[in-house]
Amino acid sequence: GTLHLNGVTVKVPSLEKAIKAAKKFAKKYNLEVQVHGNTVHVH
């Protein structure tokens, strides 16, 4: 999967790991997580 954090793109081995990391990051910075196919966006 691919993880987008505020314009930074990170390749992640699995989508589940990407979503987990995204949710952790989003919670910390009070951001929103959106999943588009195998790409996770945090903004």
Rank of each mutant, 00 (worst) to 15 (best):
G1T: 08
G1F: 15
G1Q: 07
G1R: 03
G1M: 08
G1S: 06
G1K: 05
G1E: 10
T2E: 10
T2Y: 15
T2M: 13
T2L: 14
T2F: 15
T2R: 12
T2P: 03
T2V: 14
T2S: 11
T2H: 13
T2K: 12
L3E: 01
L3Y: 00
L3R: 03
L3Q: 02
L3T: 03
L3M: 08
L3K: 03
L3S: 02
H4F: 06
H4W: 10
H4M: 09
H4Y: 09
H4N: 07
H4Q: 07
H4I: 15
H4R: 04
H4P: 02
H4E: 07
L5R: 02
L5K: 04
L5M: 11
L5T: 05
L5D: 02
L5G: 04
L5Y: 15
L5E: 03
L5Q: 02
N6D: 06
N6S: 07
N6L: 15
N6P: 10
N6Y: 11
N6H: 14
N6K: 07
N6Q: 08
G7K: 05
G7N: 09
G7E: 05
G7Q: 05
G7F: 10
G7I: 10
G7T: 07
G7A: 05
G7Y: 06
G7V: 07
G7W: 10
V8T: 09
V8S: 06
V8E: 05
V8K: 12
V8R: 13
V8W: 12
V8F: 12
V8L: 13
T9A: 12
T9N: 08
T9R: 09
T9Y: 13
T9E: 10
T9L: 14
T9I: 15
T9C: 11
T9H: 10
T9V: 14
T9Q: 09
T9M: 12
V10M: 10
V10K: 05
V10R: 07
V10Y: 13
V10E: 03
V10F: 12
V10D: 02
V10S: 04
K11I: 12
K11P: 09
K11F: 13
K11A: 08
K11N: 11
K11D: 07
K11E: 08
K11V: 11
V12S: 03
V12Q: 03
V12A: 05
V12W: 13
V12L: 15
V12F: 15
V12M: 15
V12I: 08
P13T: 14
P13D: 12
P13K: 15
P13H: 11
S14I: 06
S14C: 13
S14H: 08
S14D: 13
S14F: 09
S14L: 06
S14A: 05
S14G: 03
S14Q: 05
L15C: 03
L15A: 01
L15F: 06
L15T: 02
L15G: 00
L15S: 01
E16T: 11
E16S: 12
E16I: 12
E16C: 11
E16N: 09
E16R: 12
E16G: 08
E16H: 12
E16L: 09
K17I: 13
K17M: 13
K17D: 12
K17S: 11
K17V: 12
K17L: 14
K17P: 01
K17T: 08
K17G: 09
K17H: 10
A18S: 02
A18L: 14
A18R: 02
A18K: 01
A18F: 08
A18G: 02
A18E: 00
I19K: 01
I19S: 00
I19P: 00
I19Y: 04
I19M: 06
I19C: 02
I19H: 01
I19W: 04
I19F: 04
I19E: 01
I19N: 00
I19Q: 00
K20N: 09
K20D: 09
K20S: 10
K20E: 13
K20L: 09
K20V: 08
K20P: 00
K20C: 00
K20F: 03
K20H: 06
K20I: 12
A21I: 15
A21N: 04
A21K: 08
A21R: 08
A21V: 11
A21H: 08
A21L: 15
A21F: 12
A21Q: 07
A22Y: 03
A22F: 11
A22L: 15
A22K: 01
A22R: 00
A22E: 00
A22S: 01
A22P: 00
K23W: 07
K23L: 13
K23I: 14
K23A: 08
K23G: 03
K23R: 12
K23S: 04
K23F: 08
K23P: 01
K23H: 09
K23Q: 11
K23E: 10
K23T: 09
K24F: 06
K24I: 10
K24H: 09
K24N: 10
K24G: 05
K24Y: 11
K24A: 11
K24M: 07
K24V: 06
K24L: 08
K24W: 10
F25H: 04
F25Y: 11
F25N: 03
F25P: 01
F25T: 02
F25A: 07
F25W: 13
A26N: 01
A26V: 04
A26S: 02
A26F: 06
A26R: 03
A26D: 01
A26W: 09
A26C: 02
A26E: 04
A26I: 07
A26L: 07
A26H: 01
K27T: 07
K27E: 14
K27M: 05
K27I: 05
K27Q: 11
K27P: 13
K27F: 02
K27R: 09
K27W: 02
K27C: 10
K27Y: 03
K27N: 06
K27A: 09
K27S: 08
K27H: 05
K27G: 04
K27V: 04
K28C: 15
K28D: 09
K28P: 00
K28Q: 10
K28S: 02
K28I: 10
K28H: 08
K28T: 05
K28Y: 09
Y29L: 06
Y29I: 06
Y29P: 01
Y29N: 07
Y29K: 04
Y29W: 07
Y29H: 13
Y29V: 06
Y29E: 03
Y29M: 05
Y29T: 04
N30D: 09
N30H: 12
N30R: 05
N30V: 07
N30M: 07
N30T: 04
N30Y: 08
N30Q: 07
N30K: 07
L31K: 03
L31M: 12
L31N: 03
L31T: 02
L31E: 01
L31G: 04
L31D: 01
L31H: 04
L31F: 07
E32R: 03
E32F: 08
E32M: 11
E32L: 09
E32I: 14
E32H: 12
E32C: 15
E32A: 09
V33S: 00
V33N: 00
V33F: 09
V33R: 00
V33K: 00
V33A: 00
V33Q: 00
V33M: 05
V33W: 05
V33Y: 05
Q34L: 12
Q34E: 14
Q34H: 15
Q34A: 11
Q34G: 05
Q34V: 15
Q34S: 14
Q34F: 14
V35F: 05
V35Y: 04
V35P: 01
V35D: 01
V35Q: 02
V35G: 00
V35R: 02
V35L: 07
V35A: 03
V35W: 07
H36R: 10
H36K: 11
H36S: 11
H36Y: 08
H36T: 12
H36M: 13
H36W: 06
H36C: 06
H36E: 12
H36F: 09
G37W: 05
G37R: 04
G37S: 04
G37I: 07
G37T: 04
G37L: 05
G37Q: 05
G37H: 06
N38S: 10
N38G: 06
N38K: 09
N38M: 08
N38E: 07
N38A: 06
N38T: 12
N38D: 07
N38L: 10
N38I: 11
N38W: 14
N38V: 09
T39D: 07
T39I: 12
T39H: 15
T39R: 08
T39V: 14
T39Y: 10
T39W: 11
T39N: 11
T39M: 11
T39G: 04
V40P: 01
V40Q: 00
V40R: 01
V40K: 00
V40E: 01
V40H: 02
V40A: 03
V40L: 06
V40G: 01
V40I: 13
H41L: 14
H41Q: 13
H41V: 14
H41K: 09
H41M: 14
H41F: 14
H41P: 01
V42N: 02
V42T: 02
V42Y: 06
V42S: 02
V42I: 14
V42L: 13
V42P: 01
V42G: 01
V42H: 01
H43N: 07
H43A: 09
H43P: 01
H43L: 12
H43T: 13
H43D: 03
H43V: 12
H43M: 12
H43K: 10
H43C: 13
